[in-house]
Design a binder for these strands. Structure first.
Lengths: 129, 129
DNA sequence: CCTTGACCTTCCCGTGACTGGAACCCTCAT
DNA sequence: ATGAGGGTTCCAGTCACGGGAAGGTCAAGG
């Protein structure tokens, strides 16, 4: 399979697939003309990567998870640890965003949104006393 | 005031303050020795920026908001629009993160986390049928 | 046979909002 | 005179790609 087909199959942009090869996540073969030739194995890895990225894992996490995936002697505790660390970061982000949403929501509610200049949003940002 | 004092007062790193000058958000004076000299006005702007950034507004949003802040003839509707657009993006992000958290949470719960290799997390990433 | 168009290749730059570090200047106290 | 603790500029790196240029390859149609 050429990169275009793989892109279609995996849903990943060709650019991303090349990038993943660049950073050593996959190692497709090459045809005589220089084109990348992807085997089932590579496609499987790319799907793995796509799903892991969709769950928000960093590329480095993906590297670790792939290594564990391919290591038959892994301990599931190692996988779980990576996942839990990531989950904690997600929860921190959610908390931050919720705080922003609440503050912003209150300010927006308090703003008339008409053609007059008075605006509680700007007052707040300006450090209303 | 020199940059160090301003950094302390505003809670922004000196690097960030220089960056904000670079991109034209503030325009502090200069002393004869080349040091930046910050007036009350500049400190006020930096506090504004700090609060806007803490609410997650992009730098470009901050630029817009600052312009509105300084425009006595603004319409609060313009401010509200910027805020609402941003709020919508925050809510999208929250929804995405919540979905990740849920999926990841279930997978983590299902994972034994012991020294055996069986792992529902990897099974899922691997595309368990 | 030639051309067209759809592929593919590498390479380099840009993103957002900084952060780190090098190399150097200024000022004040010891 | 020297050292500490400010300040300055500029360059590079972050993260995970995306855009676009310049060029090679391939199958089909005229």
């Amino acid at each position: 399979m050429n990169i275009g087909d793989v892109a279609t199959q995996t849903g990943l942009p060709a650019k991303t697939i090349r990038y993943y090869e660049d950073i050593g996540l996959i190692k497709p073969m090459r045809d005589d003309n220089g084109y990348r030739r992807f085997r089932e194995q590579d496609v499987h890895k790319l799907n793995f990567l796509g799903r892991a990225r969709a769950l928000g894992f960093t590329i480095e996490d993906c590297r670790t998870l792939m290594a564990l995936y391919e290591d038959e002697t892994r301990a599931s505790a190692d996988v779980k640890k990576v996942a839990r660390t990531h989950l904690a970061q997600i929860e921190t982000k959610i908390a931050d965003l919720n705080a922003m949403r609440d503050t912003l929501g209150h300010l927006i509610d308090a703003c008339a949104g008409d053609d007059r200049p008075d605006c509680p949003i700007l007052q707040d940002l300006g450090g209303k006393p």
